[in-house]
Computed example of a mutant assay.
Amino acid sequence: MSDRSKKLGPRVTVSVTPGDYDTLNALADKDDVSVSWVIRRAIHEYLQRHYQPARPLRQPASERRPVAPERA
């Protein structure tokens, strides 16, 4: 495994429309970065906005232990 693949992780291949490709190139040129960097950043921002980790399932009430009443 190369140092680069260790740093970045697995590869993903995506096909885009010619118009989107031109727009990605324009954005990359404007900021003097690679198209790959723009796409990685876009994926990162999308995941930050939309990913919600799964919450642990609550145990059904019928399976919960009864709670002892509080003493005064």
Rank of each mutant, 00 (worst) to 15 (best):
S34Y: 05
S34V: 06
S34K: 08
S34W: 01
S34H: 03
S34A: 10
S34M: 06
V35E: 09
V35C: 04
V35M: 11
V35S: 07
S36E: 13
S36L: 01
S36Y: 01
S36K: 06
W37M: 03
W37V: 03
W37N: 03
W37Y: 06
W37D: 05
W37P: 00
W37Q: 10
V38W: 01
V38Q: 12
V38R: 09
V38P: 02
I39F: 05
I39Y: 01
I39H: 00
I39T: 11
R40A: 10
R40F: 05
R40I: 06
R40K: 12
R40P: 01
R41G: 09
R41S: 11
R41V: 09
R41D: 15
A42D: 02
I43S: 05
H44F: 08
H44N: 08
H44K: 12
H44C: 03
H44L: 08
H44V: 03
H44E: 11
H44P: 00
E45H: 12
E45M: 10
E45D: 15
E45P: 00
E45Y: 04
E45V: 04
Y46V: 07
Y46C: 09
Y46A: 10
Y46W: 13
Y46Q: 10
L47M: 07
L47Q: 05
L47W: 02
L47K: 01
Q48D: 11
Q48A: 15
Q48T: 13
Q48E: 15
Q48C: 08
Q48S: 06
Q48Y: 03
R49D: 08
R49F: 00
H50R: 07
H50S: 06
H50Y: 05
Y51T: 02
Y51H: 08
Y51D: 02
Y51G: 00
Q52M: 04
Q52K: 14
Q52V: 14
P53V: 05
P53Q: 04
P53E: 11
A54F: 00
A54V: 01
A54M: 01
A54Q: 03
A54C: 00
A54I: 00
A54H: 00
A54D: 09
R55A: 15
R55M: 12
R55F: 04
R55Q: 15
P56R: 14
P56Y: 09
P56M: 12
P56A: 12
L57V: 08
L57I: 10
L57G: 11
L57F: 09
R58E: 15
R58L: 12
R58W: 08
Q59K: 14
Q59S: 11
Q59N: 05
Q59H: 10
P60M: 04
P60N: 08
A61G: 11
A61R: 15
A61E: 15
A61Y: 12
A61N: 14
S62G: 06
S62M: 14
S62A: 15
E63P: 01
E63D: 15
E63S: 08
E63N: 11
R64S: 10
R64K: 14
R64E: 12
R64M: 11
R64G: 06
R64V: 09
